[in-house]
Design a protein around this nucleic acid. Structure first.
Lengths: 188, 188
DNA sequence: ATAATACTATACCGTTCGGTATAGTATGTC
DNA sequence: GACATACTATACCGAACGGTATAGTATTAT
């Protein structure tokens, strides 16, 4: 295994558990069994390490939801695929998901917020695309794509937040519940 | 104005903009026109300052939603009051709301997460109480109070997140939309 | 007048921060 | 054999970190 990959793995583990600011460069290289010049050779700075990490790990999530978000006439089916994609990444890459979720809500002038913002926007645009397409079939959705995308993502992340705190599991029933509630409310 | 209040105000401003870890004690006291021994006299440690800050500011939010969450037979009405309470605090204390939202999603071994956790749990319990009470009138809600509380809070925070990024405003229409969608889904 | 209490400034503690200058050691090319 | 390239360790940089010992200055109670 290459040393740059080892560094990224260790940084991901430490950042997701304790946060970017609370983890020093020294600790990362020690945990990787290397020294600082190696890290600075590959990434140039601590910020560069963070950006390389986000770039590598976001790939999983973005490709998964791009594929899932292909709208082909059935909104429920599409949303279920999207939720399943999110759940799948949250389960297989839970440390990364925890990290990017925390960074999305980090303060607006922090390094982490600026670093994660492009990837967060991309996620939202993909979801907005679903609702924009669906509005061609369901006129009453028109003009509310941002609202829906944000609200839907908010619910997904609320559920994944519970999963990351070991309060629930992420299974097919949970997918159905989430989408059904989003589409039809809580009574039915 | 007392010096301890000045310190809390400056800490709130700085933490909410750049994050707890990224702001040093020195910067806080300089911004307050004071020196470090004053801060350590009142709060004992940086962590103590954070906890005092959360305690002071959470009061606004908790009293507001406790009052709003009184269920008296009309779930829609109660939820609208709750959303209005959240929106009101988010508008009047936007720096605090941003801070506590970020801390709720901060890494699980960070100081900020541990400090904010008791207040987050209290919020959720209040909301769960609404759905537990409502289930006495609407049997099909029974046993899903956690799910609903978390999902509802997720949607509220998603919308407030948009507001904090200056993408939307928080008005009565937005309250209606949020509750209506939660209750009846997106089609109606 | 005196003593106790509450508060605040100066100056400092040891440690850690992100980052780097220097000196290597491999590996492959010509 | 000479040389460039890629990578990594030792040892260090100045600055900032959270926190404190000491010495005060007001205010209050006795």
């Amino acid at each position: 295994m290459e040393n740059d990959h080892i560094l990224l793995d260790r940084a991901l583990e430490l950042f997701s558990r304790r946060g970017y600011d609370a983890v020093g460069v020294q600790e990362i290289v020690e945990s990787a069994g290397l020294t600082k010049p190696t890290l600075y050779h590959y990434f140039g700075s601590k910020r560069g390490l963070l950006e390389a990490l986000l770039k590598r790990e976001s790939g999983h999530l973005l490709t998964a939801i791009v594929e899932a978000a292909l709208y082909q006439g059935d909104l429920v089916l599409t949303l279920e695929r999207v939720v399943r994609a999110y759940f799948s990444v949250a389960k297989q890459h839970s440390t990364f998901y925890r990290m990017q979720l925390g960074m999305y809500f980090s303060p607006p002038e922090s390094e982490t917020y600026h670093a994660v913002w492009p990837f967060a926007r991309e996620q939202r645009e993909i979801l907005e695309g679903v609702f924009i397409h669906a509005a061609e079939d369901h006129g009453n959705l028109r003009g509310r794509h941002t609202r829906y995308a944000v609200g839907f993502l908010g619910q997904i992340n609320a559920v994944i937040g519970l999963y990351l705190n070991n309060e629930i599991s992420l299974d097919d029933l949970r997918v159905y519940e989430l989408v059904h509630q989003f589409m039809h409310g809580i009574y039915s």
